[in-house]
Structures are given as structure tokens and as C-alpha cells.
Design a protein around this nucleic acid. Structure first.
Lengths: 141, 141
DNA sequence: TTCTATACTTACCAAAAGGAGAGTGTTGGA
DNA sequence: TCCAACACTCTCCTTTTGGTAAGTATAGAA
């Protein structure tokens, strides 16, 4: 009745260390599509990095953020922050002073998303060697 | 000493429901870079969908996969499968018959990655409404 | 002999992503 | 008077992404 029947108990046990819940049954395919769109929007490179530094440092200004998110261009940082604000992941506070001062901090929603990505981050750091080994094997034909 | 000091206990408690571990301290920045590259490689649209259908259905042939991963082109499916094979996420079995028969199934590594993405999937399905509400509010200026 | 099934591969092309660098507005300080 | 500071915004351009459609190989069926 469950889709995991073709895996060994050992494999499933190991997988459970990463799982925080069983996959939702996802009755309505439209929900699936929306969820998938949302994941695509939210799972991109810069969003993940911004999530990470804001979780670590709380509230940051634009220039400070651009220093901490290594390699990001002004254009991409602005774009990413606007999307995240629109999705309710962070709040943008403008202080009407000269020179301008704008602060960004995560909302509760942003914080929980960061936590959800944590599992993927942990997986990646734990399995880095295994992936690299697989690549070497593959590349050697 | 921990970066979560600027959030309320309530927010952190909610976040913990998604977290399966605290973020790794990530001493070496090179590790961080590698992990990030790996996440970027692995977190893309088609990889996530292939992971999902293979977790659900076990072993599948190319044509069957292309039917189940809705919207994927032959080109992208081939490309995604090759990358996943190279990274050790799945095994590709070629049966030397005519017409050709090729089967794909996840490795243990692939299964654990699917589990790790589970948290993000759950977050997305649980918070879909809240994100859509935030967007409406934002778009209304 | 021609058709079908399967799993691709290749060529071509349009669209989207994303980087570099210059420009903007405001005010207090040298 | 001119410059610095900050948070962008805009334009131009290159790179990447991804879709469509056609081609390939092979053996058995019609």
C-alpha cells in the first residue's frame, strides 16, 4: 500500500533520519502543481543563501547583506529580496533618512522555510563525499 | 550565542517542527561552497519530480517516467536522469533487447535525498495559503 | 517490404537568467 | 562647491536554459 515497498528496511531506516513526515497524499493534482511552483520559486540559489544569513544574523541592511551573501550582484540581491518580501518571507523596513537606511528581517514564515531547508543542507553536507565518489566512478566510464 | 535570539519562542517552536537538525556550523567555507553547489545541482525542478515518482513507484522505464513526470521533454528527462545517475542517486539498467528496455530505480542515496526534500514539500503544502495571501497583499501595494 | 516499438541524440532556435557598470536622489560635511 | 554615503534602478550584453522536431538503430510483426 505504500510506495516504499521496493526498498530494504535498512534503506528506509536511513531515509527516515532525513524525513520529518511522510509525503502528503496530495489528493488534488492542482495542489501538487501549486506546491511545485512554490518550491521552484523558493528553492533557488540566492533565496536559500539569504534565508541562511538572515537566520544567522537577524536584521541586516542591504550593503551588509550583499557582503555576506558572497558572489551576489546588486541586481540579483534586490530581485531576490523583493520576491521574498512578496511571498511573506521577510519584512523590509525603510527608514526615511539620508543616506537611505533599509533593514531586512525574516518573518515567522521565512524562519520555518529556513528550517525546512535544513534537512536538505544536512543531507548535502553528510553525503558530499559519497556523491563525489559516485561522480568519479561515473566519469571513469 | 545562537543566531535565533531575535525570534520569539513561539516562532522558534513552530520552526522546529520543520527542522530535523540544527544547521551545521560549517567551519570550512570550501565545504559550504561545495554543499551549496550540490544543493543547486540537486534542487532543480525535474530532479525533485523524478525523485518523487521513483520513490512512489520503484522501478520505471523511460517512457513510463516521461508520462508520469508531467510536462517534461525527452531532452530534459534524459539530461536529468544522466545527472542523477552520475551523482549516484539512481541506477540505470539496460536490457540488451530489441526494442530497447532501460529501467531506472533510486539508490539508497536517492531515497534519503527524497526524504530530505520532504520537509520542504510539507512546508510548501502547509503554507501555500499564507504565501498566496502575502502575495495578494503585496500586489495591492 | 514496410511499419512499429523504444530510448535516445542532434541541430536549431527562442526566451530567460544574470553579470557589469553607469546613473539617480538627497543631504550633511570638508 | 564638491564629494561621500546608501540603496537602489536601468541599460546593454553574454550565457544558460529548455523546447521542438527530426534522425538513428534493430528485430520482429504484418
Amino acid at each position: 500500500m505504500n510506495g516504499l515497498a521496493h526498498f530494504t528496511a535498512e534503506e528506509i531506516k536511513k531515509a527516515r533520519r532525513y524525513a520529518i513526515a511522510t509525503p502528503p497524499p496530495d489528493l488534488d493534482p492542482r495542489i501538487g502543481a501549486l506546491v511545485h511552483e512554490l518550491i521552484g520559486r523558493v528553492a533557488d540559489k540566492w533565496t536559500m543563501l539569504v534565508l541562511e544569513v538572515l537566520t544567522e544574523h537577524g536584521e541586516l541592511r542591504f550593503t551588509r547583506l550583499s557582503e555576506m551573501v558572497s558572489g551576489v550582484s546588486q541586481k540579483m540581491l534586490t530581485q531576490t529580496l523583493r520576491h521574498m518580501e512578496r511571498d511573506g518571507l521577510l519584512v523590509r523596513t525603510v527608514h526615511p533618512v539620508v543616506p537611505p537606511k533599509v533593514e531586512y528581517r525574516l518573518t515567522g514564515l521565512g524562519l520555518t522555510l529556513g528550517a525546512a531547508f535544513c534537512g536538505v543542507w544536512v543531507w548535502a553536507s553528510e553525503n558530499l563525499d559519497e556523491v563525489e565518489q559516485a561522480r568519479r566512478t561515473f566519469d571513469a566510464r
